[in-house]
Computed example of a mutant assay.
Amino acid sequence: MADKKTGIDQALIRDLANILNDTDLTEIEVEQDDVRIRVSRMGTPQPIQAYAPQYMQPAAAAAQPVAAAAAEAAPVINGFILTSPMVGTCYYSPAPGSPAFVEVGQTVKEGQTVLIIEAMKTMNQIPAPRSGKVTAIMVNDSSPVEFGEPLLVIE
């Protein structure tokens, strides 16, 4: 009978962590025989400032002098912008017809589920990284989202 290896293969964990860093992945999992190792990283939430998107103006407005257009700068969004941790489809509620997890103006607590992102047929609850008031929801219900895309703003 073969002896089973006891303990955790730290070299394998280091190799997986290096793969995460080299590829900008947030999670990796390997399974070999009866051992499964999952390494993931969650970046420290950092508040950022973002600007509202600029939209194309009609031709008449485009003819205005550049100085006048610069005076009408996009509003600055203040607060913490929660970004998508993965690629998937964003949902406001746990099921069709159910009330939304949060609405603009609502106060949330850290850890409270604010959205769901479906990725590969798995529903991933997205928690609020901090407590505060939801001041903007920046995605539509049932819309596709990319990794790092702004989802909502918490002040």
Rank of each mutant, 00 (worst) to 15 (best):
A2V: 15
A2I: 15
A2K: 14
A2E: 10
D3L: 06
D3R: 13
D3I: 09
D3S: 11
D3T: 14
D3E: 15
K4C: 06
K5F: 03
K5R: 08
K5T: 01
G7A: 05
G7D: 03
G7I: 06
G7M: 02
G7E: 01
G7Q: 02
G7L: 03
I8P: 05
I8L: 09
I8Y: 02
I8T: 05
D9I: 01
D9W: 01
D9V: 02
D9H: 08
Q10C: 10
Q10T: 11
Q10I: 05
A11Y: 11
L12R: 11
I13Q: 13
I13H: 05
I13D: 11
R14P: 07
R14N: 12
D15M: 13
L16C: 03
L16G: 00
L16D: 08
L16E: 05
L16R: 03
L16M: 11
A17G: 08
N18I: 09
N18V: 12
I19K: 11
I19V: 09
I19T: 11
N21G: 13
D22I: 14
D22G: 13
D22T: 12
D24E: 11
D24H: 12
D24C: 10
D24R: 15
L25M: 14
T26I: 07
E27S: 11
E27V: 04
E27M: 02
I28N: 12
I28G: 04
I28S: 03
E29P: 01
E29A: 06
E31V: 03
E31Q: 03
E31P: 01
Q32P: 03
D34E: 08
D34G: 06
V35S: 03
V35L: 05
V35Y: 01
V35C: 01
R36Y: 03
I37W: 00
I37H: 00
I37C: 01
R38C: 04
V39Y: 02
V39C: 02
S40Y: 08
R41T: 07
R41F: 04
R41A: 05
R41G: 01
M42V: 07
M42K: 13
M42E: 15
G43H: 06
G43L: 02
G43M: 00
T44H: 02
T44L: 04
P45T: 01
Q46A: 07
P47R: 00
I48E: 14
Q49V: 14
Q49D: 09
A50Q: 12
A50H: 06
Y51D: 06
Y51T: 12
Y51L: 05
Y51C: 04
A52R: 07
A52E: 05
Q54L: 13
Q54T: 11
Y55I: 13
M56K: 15
M56W: 07
M56Q: 15
M56L: 09
Q57S: 10
Q57T: 15
Q57N: 14
A59Q: 09
A59D: 06
A59I: 15
A60L: 04
A61K: 13
A61G: 07
A62E: 15
A62D: 07
A62N: 12
A62H: 12
A62R: 15
A63F: 12
Q64A: 09
P65L: 07
P65W: 09
V66P: 05
V66W: 15
V66Q: 04
V66Y: 09
